[in-house]
């Protein structure tokens, strides 16, 4: 650990990577990291499980409010955001492929596109959904001030909508921070064909963000 043999000094960082000493092999470390992260992903799914549960309960109790609420959302923005996230998921997976093959440049561009998609998602969400809706009084719970509600439980719909999408948006932001970190480290030469654990894990996180949206989109925008 303390000194790297001189013939290695010219190699990029990823080729010099040695696995942590408590693992037997790098493959075992990689496997362990993935298992650990999958376990973390289960916790993320269950975190959103609370939102899904609230949705499920109140949708069943107040179908009228849910029908009215979903009609107040524009599926075009939801659909657009779904497409944006799906494309970003693809570029994320493609970037892992490029790192595996050693096409570092292309991998980095893929990461950059992923970041742009993430930003686009947030922009659409904020500029075309949150701000217009909030400003006309379509707000959660006691903040509700929209005069044209037909169903008395409409505020609750907005509570579920804002809680769910806001927590999802927070995950998008965290994912973007992780991707930016991976991008930065890839410029330092940390990732290559034999070592790309962090890219893989960041990718898993990003796909989870996508996965949650795949369910939130029909639940909020399409089901009525």
């Amino acid at each position: 650990m303390s000194s790297i043999p001189s013939q290695n000094a010219s190699k990029p960082l990823w080729a010099r990577y040695t696995h942590a000493s408590h693992f037997r092999t790098a493959a075992e470390e990689f496997d362990a990291c993935k298992l650990g992260f999958w376990l973390f992903l289960t916790t993320e799914v269950l975190l959103f499980g609370g939102i899904f549960c609230a949705y499920f309960i109140f949708r069943t109790l107040y179908p009228g409010a849910w029908k009215e609420g979903s009609q107040l959302l524009d599926w075009r923005f939801g659909g657009l955001n779904t497409a944006v996230l799906l494309i970003s998921s693809y570029t994320m997976a493609a970037s892992i492929y490029c790192f595996q093959k050693g096409y570092t440049r292309r991998a980095q561009w893929n990461l950059i596109i992923t970041l742009i998609c993430g930003a686009a998602f947030l922009f659409i969400k904020l500029a075309y959904e949150y701000i217009p809706k909030w400003s006309v009084g379509k707000r959660p719970g006691a903040l509700f001030d929209y005069p044209f509600a037909a169903d008395p439980h409409l505020p609750l719909w907005w509570s579920v909508y804002y809680s769910g999408t806001a927590i999802h948006a927070a995950h998008v932001i965290i994912g973007m921070v992780l991707i930016a970190r991976v991008l930065y480290r890839s410029y330092k030469g940390h990732y290559g064909p034999t070592h790309y654990t962090m890219v893989e894990i960041t990718g898993l996180y990003w796909h989870l963000v996508d996965l949650i949206w795949i369910f939130l989109f029909p639940l909020l925008y399409l089901i009525h």
Partner: peptide
């Protein structure tokens, strides 16, 4: 809607992930 979402999520998990 939910079956399509399920199929989509399975695809994402199986291939992307």
């Amino acid at each position: 809607a939910m079956s399509i979402a399920t199929i989509k999520s399975i695809l994402v998990m199986a291939y992307f992930m």
